[in-house]
């Protein structure tokens, strides 16, 4: 189904982001070595690879948490200067984390509302008085957040502190927080780690819905190969900080280097 998508969708769409010859080092360790790839507008782009391949580092480079020593990043037609993560968030990049990074002391609603912080701008004085601009702003954003809550089917836990929620729901709230920012590009770091089959199916459905309904470009790191092959349009494969494969799921699946490095060398014969 998704493979079909990949072939039928126009591959001529302009890239929303281009990574050119990225190299990232931590002291003597080279986490990412001379990697180039592009992310097209509106596609689901998966990054896969064995543990320690540099996938999360790559995501951290994309949202500005790490600054690569070499290489260029082009986002929406402009080369990115070295910017802080909160500036990149304002440009329309949102993400979820491998280990849930929700704000534990806040309710579901507040967590998702916090996803809209970079769209809110009433000043301190208005906030202190509350009546007027601050309250109107709050209500306006609350409406947008309620749409996200409806979309993710988490109405019943709106007022629950997120610390009390089960794992699968916490992951969903985290996705909600990212969606509330109405990102152009959404980075998902292992959104299905530790989930059971039903939760994985739910999450896959949400990811595809986001992609279809809002046209959000999705960059996905995931270890579950069946999910990756099913929902992604194109896959980039990393191993030891190097790129060893790039293409649609079928190409990647039949690529010998990828099979050797990631899916395992066959020992049957």
């Amino acid at each position: 189904m998704a493979a079909q998508n990949a072939t039928t969708e126009p591959s001529s769409k302009a890239p929303i982001m281009e990574m050119k010859n990225i190299t990232l080092r931590f002291g003597g360790v080279t986490a990412i070595e001379n990697i180039s790839f592009d992310i097209r507008e509106g596609e689901v782009r998966a990054i896969i690879g064995p543990n320690g391949a540099g996938k999360s580092s790559m995501l951290n480079v994309i949202n500005g948490f790490y600054h690569p020593q070499e290489g260029e990043i082009w986002f929406r037609g402009a080369q990115r200067q070295s910017s802080r993560p909160h500036e990149i968030a304002k440009q329309g990049v949102a993400r979820t984390f491998q280990n849930i990074a929700l704000f534990k002391g806040m309710s579901t609603l507040d967590n998702i509302m916090s996803g809209r912080l970079n769209k809110m701008n009433s000043n301190m004085l208005a906030q202190a008085v509350w009546w007027g601009p601050a309250r109107n702003e709050e209500i306006r954003h609350r409406e947008a957040v309620e749409k996200v809550i409806d979309f993710l089917e988490i109405q019943h836990i709106r007022k629950t502190p997120v610390g009390r929620l089960p794992y699968g729901l916490q992951k969903r709230v985290e996705l909600g927080r990212a969606l509330a920012a109405e990102p152009k590009m959404l980075l998902l770091d292992e959104p299905m780690a530790g989930m059971n089959v039903e939760e994985k199916e739910d999450m896959s459905r949400f990811i595809l819905d986001v992609n279809n309904e809002f046209g959000t470009t999705i960059v996905l790191i995931e270890h579950d190969m069946s999910v990756v092959m099913d929902i992604s349009d194109r896959v980039v494969v990393l191993d030891y900080g190097k790129k060893i494969g790039d293409g649609n799921p079928d190409e990647v699946r039949s690529d010998q280097a990828v099979i050797d490095a990631y899916l395992g060398v066959s020992h049957d014969d």
Partner: peptide
């Protein structure tokens, strides 16, 4: 919310803007 975001998880707070 910005204050509490910084309190609960400063890295995530910065990444959401």
């Amino acid at each position: 919310r910005s204050w509490m975001a910084i309190r609960d998880m400063d890295i995530a707070a910065e990444i959401i803007g």
